[in-house]
Amino acid sequence: MISGPRKIAVTGHFGSGKTEFSVSLAFAMSRLCSDRLAICDLDIENPYFRSREKQAALENAGVRVYSDPFNGRNGSELQTISAAVRAPLEDAGCRVICDCGGDSVGARVLNQFRKYFTPGDHRLLCVVNCGRPGTDTPEKAAAHIRAIEDATGLSVTGLISNNHLIRYTEPEHIFEGWEFTKEVEAITGIPALAACCMETLVHSVEGRGFDVFPIGMHMRDTYLDREV
């Protein structure tokens, strides 16, 4: 993904883990490549847990964050996107990740930027999470992908497996998610590219014949895994 087209748009079912993947990808790119980097938070559905919440950490890592006209400090229900998101899309020297909202409804926002996504110059990734009730069969997941393609007029070019149960995740969940995503690949013809995995579990799932993408749990503050 680091060496591919400079524009990556990330879509997926509601709650599939697009934002965690997008933010982890941005941090990984900041470590591995010297190009200018940007992430465009195009999520106009969710009020919480959006990539713009990690703006300070991302910008410290050299990733410019584009989101709403209030520079990520818009706490209202007026879901808007800054016109400035066009800047990294037009900047030929900038690698850009577009983090979209969930489902076809969230992906629809890509329509207004479709001129920046011509065949061959981008990747349109779809995060597939078989642990979510709406995509728990390959047929349902494939239907979601078709809906996203219909809504955006773009073709999904790669699948990212992201089955997990947060702190309860076991290696078996990663294997199960990968097998599931390969079934979606068989239905749709879209290649399964990698399986996401928490950094702490990577050593347990490597060497099983698929690429593993380490996820950093950037969007989940540690206190959310504490309880009384």
Partner: peptide
């Protein structure tokens, strides 16, 4: 209610919902 670590606590937080999770981490 639920409690944790009351036996030898110098400080006792009282918290519900999200704040109780933050307090659990503050205890650590």
């Amino acid at each position: 209610y639920k409690t944790s670590n009351l036996d030898d606590a110098e400080i006792v937080f009282v918290a519900f919902g999200t704040m109780s999770r933050l307090c659990a981490e503050a205890v650590e």
